[in-house]
Design a protein around this nucleic acid. Structure first.
Lengths: 162, 162
DNA sequence: CGAATTTGTTTGCTCCCCAAACAATCTCCG
DNA sequence: CGGAGATTGTTTGGGGAGCAAACAAATTCG
């Protein structure tokens, strides 16, 4: 009954697998696109002799645009636990990109800010990110790109409101 | 020059942060949508008394549709290292969903297959995934959903071909 | 047959994530 | 004013995902 999986098997072409319903699932497409994009992001930075994750880039942008931010506010903006944020900040601080200033108004919180070196680094990172974005969008028209981002935001909103 | 961050600060509304260029970045939208979708996936299964990750679901579908698959072939299909796959298979096997059969033709490889319980479980999982997909797509028309999946595939192809 | 390759596993390392506990600080209410 | 309660940042502990390198067993190829 059980038909042999592969009659004439030499081993060469490694035929593509049957993916069943997966290709019709949004979650599946999302994960695949995301991991490909992540890989290109890492490659872009590696080729420029830099090392940064998408998450770190987002964090730096947030700190630059909202100087004086507390760690709790930042953790909320990133949707991560405040304890998760600590080692990430430690690393960026050790790289000299960011500082925890003492808050003059609240002794509990730290006022986060980029260092001058952090500002310069972020400017370079932003250029790399632009090149990266251009590459991952190379198969899409400008209209498609805008629509894609808009649809993703709708998904975020739909899944986020629970 | 430097205007004080917040003159009349009671602390109440926690105004939204300035996200700078992030909202225009595909990578950013992708990460946000993905994490929201992941959360809904987990919540859907938790509410049904089940525990499964999107990755595990994809793995089970692949094994079901390609019975006899080797671990290497599966790892390649999932784009992960073969050593990463081992603990994942161990866990699914410990749950009784999946078995490593001895391959009759190649003593090195394992022929992966779902157990009967695994088949039944996957059938239930597939129902949960369908409900989950319906929920995360609730803000999108059928046309938008198809277009979104198609655009994601284009991104995967663009970023993947390096 | 012997050398080279492939497969699955183990070990070691890094990173992300959360939950719980803790000290320091602030807020609020009596 | 003073103490109870809440908030913030940190540490610790646990889990999972991921890779690289080393290894034994088995296969393939010269």
């Amino acid at each position: 009954m059980a038909s042999p999986p592969d009659p004439q098997n030499g081993k060469p072409p490694a035929r593509p697998l049957d993916r069943g319903i997966l290709p019709q699932l949004l979650g599946y497409g999302l994960r695949r696109a995301q991991s490909a994009v992540f890989a290109d992001f890492a490659a872009t930075f590696a080729k420029a002799g830099e090392a940064l994750t998408p998450g770190e880039f987002g964090l730096l942008v947030l700190v630059e645009r909202n100087a004086g931010l507390s760690q709790m506010a930042l953790a909320r903006a990133l949707s991560i636990d405040r304890s998760t944020l600590v080692p990430i900040l430690n690393r960026l601080q050790a790289r000299g990109l960011l500082l925890r200033h003492a808050s003059p108004t609240d002794g509990r919180t730290h006022a986060l800010a980029l260092t001058p070196a952090g500002e310069r680094a972020l400017a370079k990172f932003a250029r790399l990110v632009k090149a990266h974005e251009k590459r991952i969008g190379s198969n899409l028209s400008a209209t498609e790109m805008r629509m894609l981002i808009e649809l993703l935001e709708k998904v975020h909103a739909a899944a986020g409101s629970l």
